[in-house]
Every structure is written in C-alpha cells, then in structure tokens.
Design a binder for these strands. Structure first.
Lengths: 231, 231
DNA sequence: TAACGTAATGTTGGATCCAATCAACGGTCG
DNA sequence: CGACCGTTGATTGGATCCAACATTACGTTA
C-alpha cells in the first residue's frame, strides 16, 4: 500500500488513459461486446478493426487473444475471430458459475467488511434507483456486488467473480426487458446490505442465492418464450 | 454433435499436433510453469524464448498474452513478463476457488454420470496407485477429478474448474513433499467414486469438501513450516 | 448431373524492422 | 556526500511485409 497523498487524485484521474494500444483495443472491444453492441456470431476482421480504431493489426491480434481467454470471442486458426454466441445454455452455465463463486466470496468478505464498503454499496443502491440507462445499470449492479465481496481477500477469486458478473451484462438487457426494470430486485440488494451490516453472513448468502436463482429463472423464461415465439 | 464414426479415432489420435506456433509456445510454457520447471518470479525474455523454441518473437508475444489471462505469468507494460509468484496467500486463494467450483460441478454431474466416466475414474485411481512420477501424478489427479465432473454440462464451468485444478499442480510437489506421497488421499478418491456410483451427490460432495480442505491445510502447514524455518 | 480436382482470392499466422519506453549508469550541482 | 538529471543499453510495443492456410468458385471428368 502506498501512503495516501493529495497527488493520488492526479493519477486516479489520469488512469483511464491507455498505456498501450493493445489495452485500448481490448477495453474497447470488451465494452462493446458486454454492452451488446457487437452481436454474438459477428465476425471480427483484424484489418477492419485496426482501421476503425486507428491502430495497426498487431494490437488487434493481441487483444483478440486476450478476449479469447476470457471467452468473449472465439478464435479459429486461420479462420478468424467471431463474437462468442449467447444462448440459454450459456446463460445457465454462467449462472452456475456465479452461483458457486459469489456465495463463497460473500461469506469470506462479510467478516472483514468495513464502513467504507458498506457506504459505497448503499450509495450504489441509491444510484440504481434513479439510473435510466440500462448500460450503466449493469455497471452499477456489478459495482454493488463487488463492493460487498471486496473484503474477501483472495484477489483471484474476486477477479473471477467480477469477470463472470461482467459476462452476465450481455444478458442483462434481456433480464430488464423480461421483468420490467423498475426494481431489478432492489429489495434483495437492500436485504443483502442489511444482513452484511449486521455481520450475518448466512442470511446474506441466503438472499444472494435466491437473488441469483431468480435472475437465472427470469433469463431461462425469457429464452423459452423467445424460442416458442420463433417456432 | 457429429455422428460417431470409426474415423473419429484418426482425428483424436492426430490432435496432439500443434496447429500454430502460438499454440505450441503456449502449451510448452504452460506445462513448464505448472510442472515447476520455471520458478515464480523468473523473467521471460521474448527473444530468448523465441530462440530456444525455434520460432520468432511474435508467437511468443501472443502466447504470453494468453498465459497472462490465465494468471500464469504477469506482464508489465514495457517491462516484460515474469512467471507468476506462488505463495501461501495464492494457494489459499486457489483453494477458495476450487472449494467453490468443484462441489458445484460434482453436484451437477453426478445425476448424469455414465458408466464410461465411472470406469475411467476407477482406472485413474488404479493408475495413481502405481505412478511413481510426481509430474504425471498431477495429470492423473486432474483427470480423475474431471472425469467425475464431466457430466455436469456447463462447459464454461468445467473449463474454469480444470484451469484451477491445473493451477494447483504448481503446489502439488509441496503437497507430496509435505504428507508423503504413498496415498494422496486415495481413500477420498475411492469414497467419492463410490458415492457417485450410487448417485448420492451429497455424500460425494461432503467427501470432496473434506478432500479439498485437507489439501488446503496441508499446503498451509507446509508454507508455515517453511516460513518458520527461513526466519 | 454430381463429384472431384484445381485455381483464385481474401484472411490470418509469422518474420523482420523501427520506434517508444524503461532501467541502469555516470556526471554534475547543491 | 547525497540527490537530481541526462545519456546509454537493452527490451518491449507497433508497423509493415511475406508466407501459409481456408474458402469459394470454376472447370473437368466419370
């Protein structure tokens, strides 16, 4: 930990500058895929991406490799990259992972949770109440969950959890469309924060498990309905 | 699913040929790191790796990117890549992840487990009984666990599980050194297979959780002893 | 007509070259 | 004597060029 200093505001404000072109391309593509602007199955031509992003093909190649490792794109040798498909099965897969990871992270985090994280979580709940944009909604939801897990230690567990929470963003628009966005299970969020504040890990985990299961069912119903509609 | 055919044996036998140089480099480095031949903290110079592996720097660069996404190497911009460090904290992190993922995978898999996987698992237990090489031991252990989880569906969950089971290989030598290798909790393996064969998911999960916790404690003790010895 | 073989085209994988950045060293100034 | 500053060497990041592969279309042959 570096000592706190007024100069920190400089660096934190300057952080969103990309250090390398590869990082820029990776972040740009990742955001575009997660926010649904690039549909599943869409081919990603290296040359075209390079031209549009104002870089050469090389940073694009490296970024695609990293996105491949995150299962956001699928790369076939000599055939190029396509945006990973979304499907009911993939959503269920994702929920199985979240259902395993997030309760574990929450259990580990709650005993160490500090006032700072609780305040941040409360602020994020309030922000979600008034957020109109579904895109930012996903970000706020992710930040809220991660605020609750932040004290778990175990950096790898937290990175994994955040990655799959972010991957869920690709399905979030369906979720919002399916069950009206007025309350994205906000009462669950409040209950989790309440239980966390009282140090009751098991109560918080119970709410969280119901929260995830409910979201999983909503998405499954949405896909089932869409499948029925199409056939 | 493609229809089964006698020709499948050809392709499966020919699979271990590398399709691209990048794949070759990635697999080579990954194996070297997991088997402990490359110690944590060791710098990986692109030029040197390229020369030793008989390729140019470019496949090395791409391979390092993918290994970075798997947390096997750490890449600092303009400063190069180093093999990820191992530590008591990282081992605990890894075990927290395994402890979350593997019971979930096992629960999902047991109801669908077929005779083929059970037979494979039994064969792997027998193979572990007579395997002298610790390096291959890790592979057999991983294959045994994955055989039990294989019927879970949810490909992403299985890939994650296998990745972190493989990451554990870096600590396996310590584990074997710590608690004698004569039985790497082979009775746990047998008990899990037994419970799985009877379709008793909860019993199998209970054994598995104890299995993982025991390994975690053995590793923690080993690190504690080493720290005490060094100071 | 259908299947095979071949050529053309576009895309990716790999190699080489150049530029940007970082670390270390040495000199200078306080 | 210590801290700051420019320079040098080494290494990575990025661009361009060439080769290998896959797909498509076309022509040939049974």
């Amino acid at each position: 930990m570096s000592p706190a200093s007024p100069l920190d505001s400089l660096t934190t404000a300057a952080t969103p500058r990309w250090r390398t072109a590869t990082e820029f391309v990776e972040a740009t593509l990742k955001a575009a895929i997660l926010e649904g602007r690039l549909p599943g199955g869409m081919p990603l031509r290296q040359e075209e991406l390079a031209e549009r992003l104002g870089v050469s093909r090389m940073p694009v190649r490296e970024a695609l490799r990293q996105l491949e490792a995150q299962a956001l794109v699928e790369v076939l040798p000599h055939r190029g990259a396509v945006v990973a498909e979304i499907s009911a099965a993939d959503a269920a897969d994702l929920f199985a992972i979240r259902r395993a990871l997030e309760p574990a992270a929450l259990r580990l985090s709650i005993p160490n949770l500090g006032e700072a994280q609780r305040g941040q979580a409360a602020a994020l709940i309030a922000a979600m109440d008034v957020e109109p944009d579904p895109g930012r909604m996903g970000l706020l939801n992710r930040q809220f969950h991660m605020a609750l897990y932040a004290a778990a230690g175990h950096p790898r567990l937290l990175v994994l959890t955040e990655q799959h929470l972010a991957a869920f963003d690709r399905y979030l628009r369906f979720h919002l469309a399916a069950q009206g966005r007025e309350r994205m299970a906000q009462q669950d969020h409040r209950a989790m924060l309440e239980a966390a504040a009282q140090g009751d890990a098991e109560a918080a985990v119970t709410v969280l498990e119901g929260h995830i299961d409910q979201a999983a069912e909503a998405i499954a119903r949405f896909f089932a309905a869409r499948a029925a509609q199409r056939c």
